[in-house]
Amino acid sequence: MKKLLQKIAKKSPWLYRINAGSCNGCDVELATTACIPRYDVERLGCKYCGSPKHADIVLITGPLTARVKEKVLRLYDEIPDPKVTVAIGVCPISGGVFRDSYAISGPIDNFIPVDVNVPGCPPRPQAIIDGIVEAIKIWETRL
């Protein structure tokens, strides 16, 4: 019974975007290219939700600047379990072009468990969708 529910439930991952000081390049890819009309992640059952309380898959962009760090961590805590984190772009991994800057407290996986990395500056829409599919596989085991 639990297995069956797991199988059904994995088809409805709701996405939530956190901008951790990103330059907006990855956000544009997320908001306009990868997820609405052209490549349509709604066919996978995904939906963007405005509230962290409704989220299942968290998409984080940006290098985690010092100013935004506390807020991102608090937001991350508000997301109910089970959740999966996907880091979009090269900034969450290493800082990207902002690397070694005095204003950066990343990389993000020092503070938040990151499950999937989608490198690129910005990553291609296909890569983002591939990352979301990977995240769904991980999410299924936690449901």
């Binding site: 059904i8 439930a9 409805s12 299942d56």
Partner: peptide
């Protein structure tokens, strides 16, 4: 599916 998913989430 959304409903089944929501019942499995933490409150």
């Amino acid at each position: 599916i959304d409903l089944v998913k929501l019942t499995r989430k933490e409150m």
